[in-house]
Design a protein around this nucleic acid. Structure first.
Lengths: 336, 336
DNA sequence: TCCTCTTGCTAAATGGTTTTAGCAGTTGCA
DNA sequence: TGCAACTGCTAAAACCATTTAGCAAGAGGA
């Protein structure tokens, strides 16, 4: 409990060598000319004393901390953030790094603070994660600090990781059509303003673009479209009730996320419609909810964990610096 | 981009003073005798150069890093972890600290690694968070490193933060009875083995003890009890189907968590029973799900954010070191 | 023999901050 | 006048690891 830290000097003393020698041996320098016996003695001494290098002291010389920062606008408001974090954490651990997590709430003042706090601690790199994809503004950082955008892009930094929303949108439509029951598809959740870029959200834009592209390829049009600003279950519930009351008949329902689909299930059940017999339902995100529903909701997954992992491995220089798109896998359950 | 770090020496030079003076002034030492003019000059110089102290260098002398570690078994497997993290993050930010997040998966080897990684970086304190409450084993840490247990306890460290599960259990029963409809209560999710401590989970034990206590106070017994190992929606679904098929009639259903309640809703709906008219339903945790259901699920909330916040503020020494119980608020929605 | 290379190692500088010890110069008091 | 106390400041050590420059001894070659 009270024992003092073991320093490199202690190890060197016990091994009967200089700390220079101990340092070189323990850091595994390649071209040193120290004897095999010296190596052995130093390693033995280090093991015996339980030596652990003081990272702050090392950072002072080397400017490397084996620490990265994960700065996001919201950590838990959206349940997805934790997937990103977990993936990032996993990759960081594999690369023998630790991760500082910072939350900004999207407020510029806190963003600046978070970045400064990270730089003060000389992190080796920063992952900027946005819960809603958008252009992220990032202040200058020192040249030797890596920057990766996660679920967002930046004009200044080319390293970024995004979900392949366009392909995902197409996949959803293809999945509905492949079951041979998707001739009369209704869509809920699309927001025209978003598409026009007034309320900028690249995610939604690209997802929808993919959907539209697939529909056009098949020379199809939606039999109905209902849009809304937010995509919570009760919105889905209300939109579907509206569709059922006044809209045309539909045999498939494409929901722009799983939460909308959740509400849709409730409205369909109330109306006595069976899934997938009467209506096939399809969502996006692979929210935890999707597996709870009866029947299970077929959905196009947002691969958050994979994205987090990729962002960190990109930071470690495992791949070329550019925009990386991560596949959105189709998760097939009973709803189509 | 390429600009070098501004050091204390730079500030001192610009102010025309020694770095000793600059250090004392910027760290706000109380009993220094430096002139008002010196103060002014140093602050002006620091502001002009945009000086930020190098935390690694400072840590070398002071052993304080304004960094804490949050070590948990699972970050995102349970959706609750993010609540704990968010609360902790919030409190840390308020106290001008940053947080290192580490995940161990409950594996002892990774636990040791995580602790060492944290100590190598000279964190000021460590929060050990367990997703399933239990006795946590914690290796020795240096005397000046604070330790707080979050959602778990440890023989060695007295600082801990737990949800007040006993009171929560009572509150659930009281809430059912208060509505005057809870005379025939069925319970799902309790596990006898857990209660006997074979599969040690203090959370479940205390929650159930509170429930039992309240029942006894009112001289009531459950009309049926169905237990199971895991508490996922489909378990709730199956247990309730079983109850409906072979069990006695019940007018209230107490589910040991919200996910079970979710499954219960599905089973009740299939059987044509209405909530709350035919059966009142009550859950625990205040899972995101609870608000999505129709009618909304009344539940006893696990105050994760509050717990995370408390753990960090306890670490900062804002309260006496002991076991702290956090209230579990009753969240009333339409299901009772 | 002298010179150069190689081998195996170390002294000392370095990074940026805090902190201890102490130095001039002035004031206060007897 | 003599001495203590105060005022306003600084030099240098300390924290711990990395890295540069270089030393001493032995080997090899001419």
């Amino acid at each position: 409990m009270v024992k003092k830290r073991v320093t490199l000097a202690d190890v060197a003393r016990l091994a009967g060598l200089s700390s220079t020698a101990a340092s070189m041996i323990l850091t595994g320098r390649p071209d040193t000319r120290l004897s095999a016996e010296a190596h052995e003695r130093v390693h033995a001494a280090a093991a015996q004393l339980g030596y652990r290098p003081n990272i702050a002291a090392r950072a002072l010389r080397t400017d490397k901390t084996r620490t990265i920062a994960f700065i996001s606008d919201y950590v838990a408001t959206t349940r997805f953030a934790s997937g990103l974090i977990r993936g990032a954490l996993d990759a960081a651990e594999k690369a023998n790094h630790v991760m500082l997590v910072l939350e900004t709430g999207g407020e510029p003042a806190r963003e600046v603070q978070a970045i400064e706090a990270a730089l003060d601690r000389q992190v080796d790199g920063i992952v900027f994660a946005a819960m809603r994809s958008r252009e992220i503004f990032v202040p200058d950082v020192p040249a030797n600090t890596q920057v990766v955008m996660l679920n967002g892009t930046s004009a200044k930094y080319r390293n970024s990781v995004l979900a392949d929303e366009f392909a995902g949108g197409r996949a959803a439509v293809e999945a509905l059509l492949a079951r041979g029951m998707g001739q009369q598809i209704a869509l809920i959740g699309h927001n025209e303003l978003a598409e026009r870029g007034l309320f900028r959200s690249e995610t939604v834009e690209k997802r929808f673009a993919g959907i539209r592209h697939a529909m056009e390829e098949h020379k199809l049009a939606f039999v109905a479209e209902e849009s809304c600003w937010e995509w919570e279950p009760h919105h889905g519930y209300e939109l579907v009730r509206k569709l059922l009351k006044q809209g045309p008949k539909f045999t498939a329902l494409l929901c722009l996320n799983d939460r909308l689909a959740f509400g849709a299930y409730q409205a369909l059940a109330e109306a006595g419609l069976r899934i997938p017999t009467d209506v096939a339902v399809m969502g996006f995100d692979n929210d935890e909810l999707a597996s709870y529903l009866r029947p299970g909701l077929t959905t196009v997954a947002l691969p958050h964990e994979e994205m987090g992992r990729k962002a960190v491995s990109l930071m470690m220089g495992d791949d070329e610096p550019r925009e990386h798109l991560i596949d959105m896998p189709l998760v097939v359950r009973g709803s189509i």
